[in-house]
Deep mutational scan, measured.
Amino acid sequence: TETAWISLVTALHLVLGLSAVLGLLLLRWQF
């Protein structure tokens, strides 16, 4: 169904966004 796909895509986007923010924070901490 479409709702399942939409929720799955939004979850993936949230995970990608969180990982990107965490990566930037880690880079700032290291340097």
Results as ranks from 00 to 15, higher is better:
T1N: 00
E2S: 15
E2L: 06
E2N: 12
E2R: 11
E2I: 13
E2M: 04
E2K: 10
T3I: 03
T3Y: 08
T3R: 13
T3A: 06
T3V: 07
A4M: 13
A4E: 03
A4G: 02
A4V: 06
A4S: 12
A4R: 15
A4D: 09
A4C: 08
W5N: 11
W5H: 15
W5Y: 03
I6V: 05
I6H: 06
I6D: 07
I6E: 06
I6W: 15
I6A: 04
I6M: 07
S7V: 01
S7P: 11
S7F: 01
S7Q: 14
S7W: 01
S7G: 12
S7C: 00
S7M: 02
S7I: 01
S7D: 12
L8N: 13
L8K: 08
L8G: 11
L8H: 12
L8S: 06
L8Q: 05
V9N: 15
V9I: 06
V9K: 07
V9L: 06
V9T: 14
V9S: 12
T10W: 11
T10H: 13
T10G: 11
A11N: 09
A11Q: 02
A11G: 07
A11W: 10
A11K: 13
A11D: 04
A11I: 12
L12N: 10
L12H: 13
L12R: 05
L12E: 01
H13C: 03
H13L: 14
H13N: 05
H13Q: 02
H13A: 09
H13G: 08
H13W: 12
H13F: 14
L14C: 15
L14S: 09
L14G: 12
L14R: 06
L14Q: 10
L14K: 03
V15E: 01
V15I: 10
V15A: 00
V15L: 01
L16W: 06
L16A: 09
L16N: 05
L16E: 05
L16C: 00
L16M: 01
G17R: 02
G17V: 09
G17N: 01
G17H: 14
G17Q: 15
L18N: 10
L18D: 05
L18M: 04
L18Y: 03
L18S: 13
L18C: 09
L18R: 08
L18G: 12
L18P: 10
S19Q: 08
S19K: 01
S19W: 12
S19F: 13
S19E: 08
S19C: 02
S19R: 05
S19M: 15
S19L: 10
S19D: 00
A20D: 01
A20V: 01
A20T: 08
A20F: 07
V21F: 04
V21M: 06
V21K: 15
V21R: 12
V21L: 04
V21C: 11
V21D: 04
V21N: 07
L22E: 07
L22F: 07
L22P: 01
L22Y: 06
L22R: 05
L22G: 13
L22H: 10
L22C: 09
G23S: 04
G23N: 03
G23F: 03
G23L: 06
G23V: 02
L24M: 07
L24W: 15
L24F: 04
L24G: 12
L24K: 08
L24V: 04
L24D: 09
L24Y: 14
L24T: 08
L24N: 13
L25N: 12
L25W: 12
L25Q: 03
L25P: 10
L26F: 13
L26E: 07
L26I: 14
L26M: 02
L27D: 12
L27N: 09
L27M: 04
L27T: 13
L27H: 05
L27V: 06
L27P: 07
L27R: 11
L27Q: 08
R28P: 12
R28F: 09
R28M: 04
R28E: 02
R28K: 01
R28L: 08
R28T: 07
W29I: 00
W29Y: 00
W29C: 01
W29S: 00
W29M: 00
Q30D: 10
Q30C: 11
Q30H: 01
Q30M: 03
Q30F: 04
Q30N: 08
F31I: 00
F31S: 00
